[in-house]
Design a protein around this nucleic acid. Structure first.
Lengths: 193, 193
DNA sequence: TTGTCAACTGACCGAATGTTCGGTAAACAC
DNA sequence: GTGTTTACCGAACATTCGGTCAGTTGACAA
């Protein structure tokens, strides 16, 4: 029998708590002692469930990146006007950001301090390159204001998208769908009446 | 006589190097040993010029916040349509971000881990409140699309502005003025043709 | 009743951390 | 030349770090 299994942690619950604390204090600002306190166990108990601090980070970053990679794979197979594909990518990005909020939040703060972080940055750059290319396509098709540099548009557009990790809290501020609607409305159409 | 003063460091040059390294590795991810290496001196030499690591952070954050505070003071005295004042605040924000890029970059990564960081977050919140109010005014005057929540507009708008610290490098990608022009064009008017 | 095993604890390790301290070489002041 | 100041070094400080390991506990199976 398996059900209920008493009380206790497993690799999944440890990861969830760890990512929450990493986001509160920053990865480097979080000690294993901090994690232990948040889990209600001693430091050594953590090592029963996971191999170490850096692997905790690696698993968290993979969760974020797997979502973004899946998006790219899906969308590479799509066709139609680039501007419409771009809008879909933005909407899907918002969805993934919200669904995997703590993991993506962590990813967006990574600086490349370790091999793990550098690997994550490389995977992230693939996503950036994909989006960047898509915006250029849309510009080449004449769907983006010609006075705006496509590279700049990409950065500002995803600056707005990524800022979601800085202020969005689930349950507040509407559903992910409404959020995506508003974001697309503002970035594509402008905030001015 | 004063001129040239041989070679060597002073509190100012230590701060400049420290902030650069803080931004590369993160504040918590940077050791005094790292700073010493970047300065070409030993750890102890740093303490001759500055009182410690946290004061280095405090001074850096003050540089960023003093700029933003000055902007608020200036703009509180301004009049005219809120939408025009908002556009001016955005342009000035871009200017300050670029002028004080390393300092503002550091500020935007602060999580509140120490008393120093919490004080900085409080000052930053004053700026956010000011901008938030301004967007609401503009909405009340009918200058912002009524289907967009003003609070959301504020966050996305400054999500785009603040993203500058993530990718802008001086000398590349045009002058600060052109950057502000493009940013205002896109956020106010939309990226679509 | 005994044995097994998952899930821990507590004591500990070596390394790294931020900071302090005693000393010192070179430049300057007189 | 003598004393003082400036800018630093090297060693040491207490503390904290990520991580290890032998042992304990309590639920459950036989």
């Amino acid at each position: 029998m398996e059900r209920e299994r008493k009380r206790g942690h497993d690799p999944e619950s440890v990861l969830a708590v760890a990512v929450r604390v990493f986001n509160e204090r920053g990865y480097d600002g979080t000690s294993m002692e901090d994690l232990a306190r948040a889990l209600g166990v001693t430091k050594s108990a953590i090592y029963y469930h996971v191999p170490g601090k850096e692997q905790l980070l690696a698993r968290a970053l993979d969760r974020a990146l797997d979502g973004l990679t899946a998006l790219v794979v899906d969308e590479r197979a799509a066709s139609g006007p680039a501007i419409e594909r771009l809008e879909r990518v933005v909407r899907q990005s918002v969805r993934i950001l919200v669904e995997r909020l703590p993991y993506v939040t962590l990813l967006l703060r990574v600086r490349g301090n370790s091999a793990t972080e550098q690997r994550a940055l490389e995977r992230r750059r693939e996503f950036d390159a994909f989006v960047s290319h898509l915006v250029k396509e849309a510009a080449a098709e004449g769907s983006i204001r010609p006075d705006l540099d496509p590279a700049l548009v990409t950065r500002l557009l995803f600056g707005a998208v990524n800022s979601i990790t800085e202020w969005y809290r689930p349950g507040r501020g509407g559903s992910p769908g409404e959020l995506a609607d508003a974001l697309v409305a503002m970035t594509f159409g402008g905030l001015r009446v």
